[in-house]
Every structure is written in structure tokens, then in C-alpha cells.
Design a protein around this nucleic acid. Structure first.
Lengths: 87, 87
DNA sequence: ACTAACGGTAAGTTGTGGCTAACGGAAGTG
DNA sequence: CACTTCCGTTAGCCACAACTTACCGTTAGT
């Protein structure tokens, strides 16, 4: 569900209610998920009248990207080693 | 827990029992996690006598990497747009 | 001011993910 | 052939994540 929310926000910033309309869960559920995503540094909110517009936090994906790059290299190295072994 | 298991396997291939020794869970728990990781295409197993040696599946991280790259670009684009807007 | 719109929070319920314990099968070892 | 080792599977339990309902504070509109 949080991945789905993140996907929507990656297209354009949206308010909570607007998000909840297209999702199969209630508005409070979306609000709770946004709280988690915000604490994880993946999204940021901005007050706009009574509405709270949420957007992706560009810095949020950084650590995940670093972790993935590190393991990506390891995986390639392991694969190369395996090929070399089978020859 | 599955991230921890994946981390260990990224260093070198290991058997189930060997994996469970250094983890704070029982051997069946590790086995169940490996089943999930295998179904997700992240690890591969190889029978070696009674032991089952698990190794990282190099192709497994591909989809995740693609997803991350796609959203990474989106995030940067959104950030650029926001900077441009605030000027 | 009164009302409506919007969203965060608290309380309560439920579904389920993750663990352990117990069992059974397959492969080495004497 | 017994015996041990190693692992997967199942059943069952439990904690917690996730959802809904209800409520309250805040802001814009008339």
C-alpha cells in the first residue's frame, strides 16, 4: 500500500483526500501511511490552506539506492565468479 | 530479517544451518525466509548432499533496480521543478 | 460567527506475518 | 541396516501491523 501511495506521489504532488479517493482504503489509513513515509524521509508535506499537499522527498531514496548499488556490485561479482568456476 | 539474510548471502554462499547459527532465530524460520526470497527470485539454492547451499541470484535485483531508477529520475525532476518554482 | 471542508489522532477490531515445536524425508557414515 | 545429520513442511500460537469508526482542531467561505 505504501508503495502504491509512493507511486502516485511520484507522478505529481497530491493531497490526502485526493489520494484516498483512488485507493481502496479510507482516508485515515492513507494519513497513517503518509506519517510512516514521512518519518522514513521518503515524502514531505506542505500546508496549503486546510489541505496538506504531499510530495516525494528527493533525498529519501538515497540510502536505498546506496544499499542497492553496493549489493548490485556484489551480485555481479558473485555471478562472474560462478561463470569463471563453471568454465 | 530477510534483509539480514540477504546481506549474509551477498558475502558468500551459505547453507541453512550455517546461516541460522549467526541469526537470532531458529533454523526453520530461516528456511521459511529463504523460501520467500527464492520465490521472489532474489536467491537460488543448490543441493550439495544433505545440505542446501543458498546463493544470491544476480538477476533478482534487476527489477528493484529498475523501479528505483525510474523513481529516482522522477524525484530529481520533481526537485528541479520545485527549485525552479521557488526562484 | 456559523458552517463546511480537510486532515490528524485515538480507540478498538481484525487479519496475518513470523516464530517455535514437532514431524518426516533424504543423504552421508559406521 | 541402523544411526546421525541436515533440511523442508506443517500446525499452532502470538504479537503487531493495518484498517475502520469516531472525534477534534484548524482553516476557508458566506
Amino acid at each position: 500500500m505504501r508503495v502504491a501511495i509512493f507511486d502516485r506521489l511520484s507522478e505529481r504532488p497530491m493531497a490526502v483526500g485526493e489520494l484516498a479517493e483512488t485507493l481502496p482504503v479510507s482516508r485515515p489509513a492513507v494519513s497513517q501511511h503518509l506519517k510512516v513515509l514521512k518519518e522514513a524521509g521518503l515524502v514531505a508535506s506542505e500546508a496549503e490552506g486546510t489541505r496538506r499537499v504531499y510530495r516525494i522527498d528527493p533525498a529519501g531514496l538515497g540510502p536505498l539506492r546506496e544499499w542497492l548499488d553496493r549489493h548490485w556490485e556484489r551480485a555481479l561479482a558473485a555471478f562472474a565468479e560462478k561463470v569463471e568456476e563453471s568454465e
